[in-house]
C-alpha cells in the first residue's frame, strides 16, 4: 500500500511539474514584455526589445513569444522592433487617455511607430491614423511631436488614434538599424510618452 502511494505521489509530482512548466511557457509566450540586461535592449526604461528576434539563436521562450505576438519578424540586421506598454511614469496605456509622443532622429534608415490593441492587432477604427513614420516628419520638425489618443488634435498635427482599443502598446520599428549604436547603451532620441489627460466617460 505504501509503495502504491509512493508511486502515485511521484507520478503526480512529475505530471504536475510538466503541466505547470507547459502552462507557464504558454502564459509567458502571450506576454509582450521584452528586454534584458544586454545593452540597448531597454531604452529609457520603457522601450524594450530582444536582439535575437527572428534569429536562429533565439531561445525557445523568445521564439514562442514572437510566434504569438510578432510572427514573421525580421532579424536584427534588417529591422529591430521596440515595444512599450507604459507611459513615462510607468503607468499602463489606456485608449481613453491622450498622450504626447515626442522624439527625434533614430539610428536607422527608416522608422515607424504603430499602435496595437490588447490583442496585438491594429485598433478597429476608421481614422486612418494607426501609425506615424519617418516620411511624414519633415526635418524642420525635429524633435517631432505626435498626439496619441481618441481625438484628432488638429488637421495638420501628427496623430495616432486609440479609438477601438481598450489598452494598447506602441511598436517602434527601426529598419536597416545602426546596430553598433543601438547596442552601445548610447541611444538617444527614443520617444517619450507623456500622459496629458483621460476622458473617463469614454472608459465607461
Amino acid at each position: 500500500m505504501k509503495t502504491r502511494t509512493t508511486i502515485l505521489v511521484s507520478f503526480a509530482c512529475v505530471v504536475g511539474g510538466f503541466v505547470c512548466g507547459a502552462g507557464g511557457a504558454l502564459i509567458h509566450s502571450g506576454q509582450n514584455q521584452l528586454g534584458s540586461d544586454a545593452p540597448g535592449t531597454v531604452v529609457n526604461g520603457t522601450w524594450k526589445t530582444d536582439f535575437e528576434i527572428g534569429s536562429e539563436n533565439a531561445s525557445g521562450a523568445l521564439r514562442a513569444r514572437v510566434a504569438r505576438k510578432g510572427l514573421f519578424a525580421l532579424s536584427r540586421s534588417e529591422a529591430v522592433y521596440y515595444t512599450r506598454n507604459v507611459d513615462d511614469e510607468g503607468r499602463d496605456l489606456f485608449a481613453h487617455c491622450t498622450y504626447r509622443l515626442s522624439g527625434s532622429g533614430f539610428p536607422a534608415e527608416w522608422w515607424s511607430v504603430t499602435l496595437y490593441d490588447q490583442d496585438s492587432f491594429l485598433a478597429r477604427n476608421r481614422d486612418d491614423a494607426a501609425s506615424i513614420n519617418k516620411d511624414g516628419i519633415s526635418p524642420s520638425e525635429e524633435p517631432w511631436r505626435a498626439s496619441v489618443g481618441p481625438e484628432r488634435p488638429s488637421p495638420d498635427g501628427h496623430w495616432i488614434s486609440t479609438s477601438g482599443a481598450e489598452t494598447f502598446d506602441l511598436t517602434l520599428r527601426l529598419y536597416r538599424p545602426h546596430l553598433a549604436r543601438l547596442m552601445s547603451s548610447q541611444v538617444t532620441g527614443f520617444p517619450t510618452l507623456e500622459l496629458l489627460s483621460c476622458d473617463e466617460e469614454r472608459s465607461s
Partner: peptide, 15 residues
C-alpha cells in the same frame, strides 16, 4: 525536472 521539460516542450511546440 518535469517543469523544465514541460517548459521546453511547450516553447518548441508553440512556434
Amino acid at each position: 525536472l518535469a517543469f523544465v521539460a514541460g517548459w521546453s516542450v511547450m516553447n518548441h511546440v508553440i512556434p
